[in-house]
Design a protein around this nucleic acid. Sequence first.
DNA 1: GTCAGATTAGGACAATCGACCTAGAAAGTC
DNA 2: GACTTTCTAGGTCGATTGTCCTAATCTGAC
Lengths: 198, 198
Amino acid sequence: MHVTQAAIIECADELFYQQGFTHTSFAQIAAKVGISRGNFYHHFKTKDAILDAVIERRLEKTRHMLKAWEGKSNTPAQRVRCFIKILTTNWSSIRLYGCPVGTLSTELGKLDHPQRKHAGEVFTVFKDWLVHQFVAMGQQTLAEEHALHVLAFSQGTATLASTYRDKSFVDREIERMCQWLQSLEKSPAGSHSTKGDR
Amino acid sequence: MHVTQAAIIECADELFYQQGFTHTSFAQIAAKVGISRGNFYHHFKTKDAILDAVIERRLEKTRHMLKAWEGKSNTPAQRVRCFIKILTTNWSSIRLYGCPVGTLSTELGKLDHPQRKHAGEVFTVFKDWLVHQFVAMGQQTLAEEHALHVLAFSQGTATLASTYRDKSFVDREIERMCQWLQSLEKSPAGSHSTKGDR
DNA sequence: GTCAGATTAGGACAATCGACCTAGAAAGTC
DNA sequence: GACTTTCTAGGTCGATTGTCCTAATCTGAC
């Protein structure tokens, strides 16, 4: 039954985030789902298979969230601000467990895990979306660089804020980032001014 | 004999960095040191005791490195640049394993490990040193904020660069950071100019 | 040379890991 | 109703985990 399968993925997702992939066992997932340990083999052959499904779920949820942001905000700069402020939105969990994308990618990197690149795709989904926003802001030449810069800001702030569990630091960094974004809005910086969205 | 003890700490340090704390076992450390597994108990009662010693060693090495930087660079801004460029200096390992400080802090956070705060002290050593440099630059009111900003930059860049294993991105972010630092040098920004180092 | 203390190797211990199997319950088809 | 497929519970498997013990070896003081 695939409602059980979905429940396994959801619980595994949460536990991988909160405890890390290595430190999470089948027994813990099973307990959280409320099924027996041995039942796993029918749904997922290996632990890596669960990880694969978790990453796929995260990719899906990320794409969905970004699409939702398109509807809520009018300007591309406003959409980028949505991303920047995600640290505040998810603060209660980031405070304890850091950024789910960065921490998983880091852990799999250390394990030299075959799914390392797959986990990195979540970053790429964010990056491509950000690139699209910066291009819409008239920053096509530096769009990629700016996108990665915003991602790095998000990662660094999450890591440090999680270490010190300090919210005020997050607010200051967000303010700094928003000011930087505003300075981009004011100076279109396009070598050739661009009408038409290409 | 305390040469063995030092060897254990050094090997454990390396393995904790490369594989993570959870994923590193006594057997692996023992094999790396070249001693038997059972011999550990004589030197360290528990795995946490080894972790404690590793963190202490890192604190010591960090303080030593920062002191060395004081000698090599004349201006405080130049010293901050030493820190910023550490991503390039240690690129070959950061590429594969990320920042040793951030990744350990993140992992211990997820484990809710008692030594979490101890690991975070390495950040604080860097922070205090950076604060001192910014104060010397005449940025006393914003010194703490600037220091944390530089730390966050370092963390974010390391995480993202390690995910994509892309050196050129590191270079661009370093360049961006150095320009920001230069803009600070030009505008002393002291609300009241300050002679006397307080 | 003797002897006490420090250091070591090798293994035992219970617990847990991911992986796997089997028997039976549940669900759906005809 | 009988029958097939899907799902589940419980348990076993060898390997590995951190911890701990003991007997042997090494070292240095006397």
